[in-house]
Write a protein that binds this DNA or RNA. Structure first.
Lengths: 70, 70
DNA sequence: ATTGATTGTCATATATATATTGCATATTTA
DNA sequence: TAAATATGCAATATATATATGACAATCAAT
């Protein structure tokens, strides 16, 4: 439809916190590591449910984690 | 996987603002009215892209619009 | 009462988010 | 420097978000 891109700083925040591996976060959220990998690489457009779970486990707001670019 | 529910106040905010009809908001966001209807009825788990577009056009934060309940 | 606009909802089709398995490459740690 | 762990990324399968078209129900303004 539009060519706007969804970006996130999941990987950045996860690494900064040095608390979970990609696989651990995936497990906490309830998705596979591959799905988390694609989300972190900004190659997916995840559902709000997954985003809310990531936000919860990383303890940062949705708005801080996800945004739009043109 | 889990039985947690995603809720939103899209309809509430839209009606309060008295600015767009369901169909107009759908068009602005780039989805069909039916999709917007299901989102407003909390029967869908929309993608973050759609959520960000709704948030943008209603001019409220993601965190204010979407949350989780157990 | 009737018309027009808005909304709820159905049934079917398509696109894509997510799962599964597997393997190669980094990165860390002993 | 080897072994263990973490990450990136294929290919294919499945579940579900979204589209399409249509119609009934609700509500507002005649």
């Amino acid at each position: 439809m539009n060519d706007l891109v969804i970006r996130n700083r999941v990987k950045l925040v996860r690494i900064e916190q040095d608390k979970h591996t990609q696989g651990e976060l995936a497990k906490l959220v309830g998705v596979t590591r591959q799905t988390m990998n694609l989300i972190e690489a900004n190659k997916y457009n995840p559902t709000i449910k997954v985003c809310l779970l990531i936000s919860k486990h990383l303890e940062v707001s949705l708005d801080h984690l996800f945004w739009m670019e043109e």
